[in-house]
């Protein structure tokens, strides 16, 4: 089953290349942030990336098949965060992030690393985001998205919710947290002498018509992947510390 899923992901990755189009992104584009803000966000994001690398090395030393799973998840996050989805109600398009799903399966710190790798490739090859805004984009999509998704999932699971609901809200809040973070970083970078909060709300409200339905789509997608794994390969969820062994249906 897992091979079939891997084959499907690879097939659709190539299929998406066949209909490749200009990147439509939510990432902060190259040159939008002033230099000092770009450096600040990079400095804030760097420890999370370093900790992600540390966690990856630690987990991979215990389980040698962990790195291939991380590689596979990195490919999934890269593809998911590249795909512009039209939102007819808003007349715009944007993309899901995939970091909620990655954070549930790999842990939030390794999900930050995965997002950083995806964002770097997008900035280099797709003019999607930028190298100068890499730190800010890691912070919004990687750190905020991953930690919001992970803690939402954990909180709802500890409150007794089933994995479908917990997965849905994890994907939803990961998406919305990413865009709230983008709004905050953009507002702080471009505000100049104007007050921060009015501009922050203005940008955040502008995201709502697009991200409200896309967040729901991302929630459904995250829940779908978790439930699929739960039904077909629950042992993988135990291995990835998503579920305890006693939580698996016998």
């Amino acid at each position: 089953m897992i091979k079939q899923i891997i084959c499907l992901v690879i097939f659709f990755a190539f299929a998406s290349l066949a209909v490749a189009s200009d990147a439509m992104a939510m990432h902060i584009s190259e040159g939008i942030l002033p230099f000092n803000w770009a450096v600040l966000w990079f400095a804030v994001a760097a420890p999370f990336v370093a900790f992600g690398l540390f966690r990856l090395q630690k987990r991979a030393s215990v389980d040698l098949s962990f790195k291939p799973l991380v590689g596979l998840m990195a490919a999934a996050v890269f593809i998911i965060s590249c795909m512009p989805i039209p939102v007819p109600t808003a007349g715009t398009c944007s993309h899901p992030c995939g970091t909620g799903m990655a954070a549930i399966l790999l842990g939030p710190s390794i999900s930050v690393l995965v997002a950083a790798a995806a964002l770097l490739i997008q900035a280099l090859f797709l003019a999607h985001g930028g190298l100068s805004t890499w730190g800010a984009n890691i912070l919004s999509m990687g750190v905020l998205g991953s930690f919001a998704g992970y803690f939402t999932f954990r909180l709802l699971r500890s409150a007794g919710m089933n994995i479908t609901i917990a997965g849905f809200f994890a994907g939803l809040f990961a998406d919305w947290a990413t865009y709230a973070g983008t709004a905050a970083m953009l507002a702080s970078g471009i505000k100049g002498d104007t007050p921060f909060m009015p501009l922050f709300w203005k940008i955040l409200i502008s995201f709502i018509p697009t991200q409200l339905p896309l967040g729901i789509l991302e929630g459904g997608m995250t829940a779908g992947v978790i439930v699929l794994l739960y039904k077909k390969r629950p042992d993988l969820l135990v291995k990835m510390c998503v579920l305890r062994p006693e939580e698996i249906r016998t």
């Binding site: 902060i28 512009p84 930028g130 970078g189």
Partner: peptide, 26 residues
């Protein structure tokens, strides 16, 4: 999507950045 609708990077991020004197670099 790409042909008909702009992404939120254009319609939101770059729009507000331009209003505040910042433009996306190449």
């Amino acid at each position: 999507a790409a042909d008909k609708w702009t992404g939120v990077d254009e319609s939101v991020v770059e729009k507000y950045a331009k209003e505040h004197g910042r433009e996306a670099a190449k």
